[in-house]
Simulated scan of single mutants.
Amino acid sequence: METLAEGVEEQDQLEVLRREGCQNIQGFLYSRPVPSIEVEGLIRKCHGEANRWVA
Rank of each mutant, 00 (worst) to 15 (best):
E2T: 15
E2D: 15
E2K: 14
E2C: 15
E2S: 15
T3L: 14
L4R: 05
L4P: 00
L4N: 07
E6F: 08
E6H: 06
V8H: 02
V8R: 01
V8Q: 04
E10G: 07
E10R: 11
Q11M: 12
D12T: 14
D12Q: 13
Q13N: 09
Q13P: 06
Q13M: 09
E15S: 14
V16Q: 12
V16N: 10
V16L: 13
V16K: 14
V16G: 10
L17G: 02
L17W: 00
L17F: 03
R18C: 13
R18G: 10
R19I: 11
G21P: 01
G21S: 06
G21A: 01
C22W: 02
Q23V: 06
Q23A: 07
Q23I: 06
Q23D: 07
N24C: 15
I25A: 08
Q26H: 09
G27R: 00
G27H: 04
G27P: 00
G27V: 00
G27E: 05
F28G: 09
F28R: 12
F28K: 11
L29T: 06
L29W: 00
L29H: 06
Y30S: 05
Y30N: 00
Y30C: 01
S31N: 04
R32I: 02
R32E: 04
P33L: 04
P33H: 00
P33T: 00
P33Y: 01
P35Q: 06
P35Y: 05
P35F: 03
S36K: 09
S36G: 10
S36L: 09
E38W: 09
E38A: 11
E38C: 10
E38M: 10
E38I: 08
V39Y: 04
V39F: 07
E40H: 08
E40W: 06
L42T: 05
L42V: 01
L42S: 04
L42I: 04
K45W: 04
K45V: 05
K45E: 08
K45F: 06
K45I: 03
C46P: 01
C46G: 08
C46D: 08
C46V: 11
C46W: 09
H47Q: 14
H47S: 14
G48D: 04
G48E: 03
G48V: 03
G48F: 03
E49D: 01
A50N: 01
N51K: 11
R52K: 13
R52N: 12
W53Y: 10
V54I: 12
V54L: 11
A55W: 08
A55K: 07
A55V: 06
A55C: 08
